[in-house]
């Protein structure tokens, strides 16, 4: 089953974020609560944890790219 890694709500007025760093590569095994990706808003960096155990099967937003609240950053299978 595929689980998407989503950009969370970042506060009332924040809609955009940048992917600062992927802490896992495609094919890596990850456990729930591992930090897999770091995103940044205009003000702060935020570490995002894996929502479940599995393998990172896809990175949809690469490092340095901009994204929006609710977007899919990557997929864990």
């Amino acid at each position: 089953m595929a689980t998407e890694i989503l950009v969370p709500q970042l506060g009332n007025e924040v809609t955009e974020a940048e992917v600062t760093e992927w802490a896992a590569a495609v094919g890596d095994n990850v456990s729930a609560s591992d930090i897999v990706v770091v995103i940044s808003t205009t003000k702060a960096a935020l570490e995002i944890e894996a929502p479940c155990d599995g393998t990172l099967s896809e990175i949809r937003i690469g490092e340095g790219e901009l994204t929006e609240v609710g977007a899919v950053l990557g997929v864990i299978e």
């Binding site: 809609t15 974020a17 808003t41 003000k43």
Partner: peptide
């Protein structure tokens, strides 16, 4: 947007 251009911060 402030994610795309240099901000005052």
């Amino acid at each position: 947007s402030p994610m795309r251009a240099v901000t005052l911060r």
